[in-house]
């Protein structure tokens, strides 16, 4: 920041402009949110729309307050969060491992290709009844569904990253006498770090799809359960509140990955 002293007035003005623009964008984002919420609240309050089917911000707040008071809020949030995170980490870990094996062996890669293509195209929800029968109606089934949805995507994304490794850099390492394991650890894994981060980002979304979809099919608790239950008993406040909580959780998880990205990826070009 000491450098700023040496900048010309024009450059300082430019920096000021950039700062202003950013502030304006942030303000506009916030204003739009506020406007929508106000409009929603007012239309519900004055019954321009039917609050019974659209709910309203104040009714959602009240609903979340009720959940908090009867002590089930954190139970439901915790259940879904646990299922999502467990499914996320297992899918990412397994996917990474399998992608490594596929990178290592071209034969294995070629043999397994059609299986991955079919599994990738298959809508995993079609396996719902099987999963219930195999894993019962608890969290285990939902974690399994989450893994199923994230795994293939994780494998294909990571494998893509591994296969993109610069051929010349491989040649360079070979000329130094590097073994395949050294090529993997010194080059392939570090150079595919950006792919790993983007795979994590994609899998954050996949994990939420998996856990909520799993809860739709079979569950006794969780945010997905609240949404389905709320729909069945026509408590739209509950549905809206659950969706709202989901938005916040997903955003926080995405932000965590984005933070990881900032910490890990430096000095790359």
């Amino acid at each position: 920041m000491k450098k700023e002293m040496n900048y010309s007035p024009q450059h300082l003005a430019y920096l000021q402009g950039v700062k202003k623009k950013t502030a304006w964008v942030n303000a506009a984002r916030f204003a739009i949110l506020l406007l929508l919420l106000t409009l929603w609240e007012l239309s519900a309050r004055f019954e321009w729309i039917n609050p019974f089917i659209t709910s309203s911000p104040s009714r959602m707040l009240a609903c979340i307050g009720d959940l908090y008071k009867n002590g089930t809020l954190f139970y439901h949030v915790g259940t879904t969060l646990w299922e999502t995170l467990a499914g996320f980490f297992l899918a990412v870990g397994l996917g990474y491992g399998i992608a490594l094996l596929l990178w290592w062996s071209e034969t294995f890669r070629r043999i397994s290709e059609p299986y991955f293509v079919v599994l990738n195209a298959l809508p995993k929800i079609a396996l719902g009844p099987l999963i219930i029968i195999w894993f019962g109606t608890g969290s285990k089934a939902i974690v399994f569904m989450t893994i199923l949805i994230g795994l293939i995507v994780a494998i294909l994304n990571m494998l893509g990253g591994f296969m993109e490794t610069d051929e010349n850099k491989i040649l360079l390492l070979k000329s130094m006498g590097a073994s395949k394991l050294q090529i993997l650890t010194k080059l392939v894994i570090p150079s595919s770090l950006p792919n790993f981060i983007s795979m994590l980002k994609i899998n954050v979304g996949m994990a939420w799809i998996g856990s909520i979809m799993g809860e739709y099919i079979v569950s006794k608790a969780g945010i997905g359960y609240l949404i389905v239950y709320g729909g069945q008993v026509f408590k739209l406040d509950l549905v809206m509140s659950a969706v709202f909580i989901l938005c916040i959780l997903a955003a926080v998880m995405y932000a965590a990955v984005a933070l990881l990205e900032r910490l890990v990826i430096k000095n790359r070009k």
Binding site: N168, L172, S175, P190, R268
Partner: peptide, 11 residues
């Protein structure tokens, strides 16, 4: 071995 590009590892 020295290649066309420096192939320095950016990380």
């Amino acid at each position: 071995y020295m290649l066309q590009k420096d192939e320095l590892f950016p990380w």
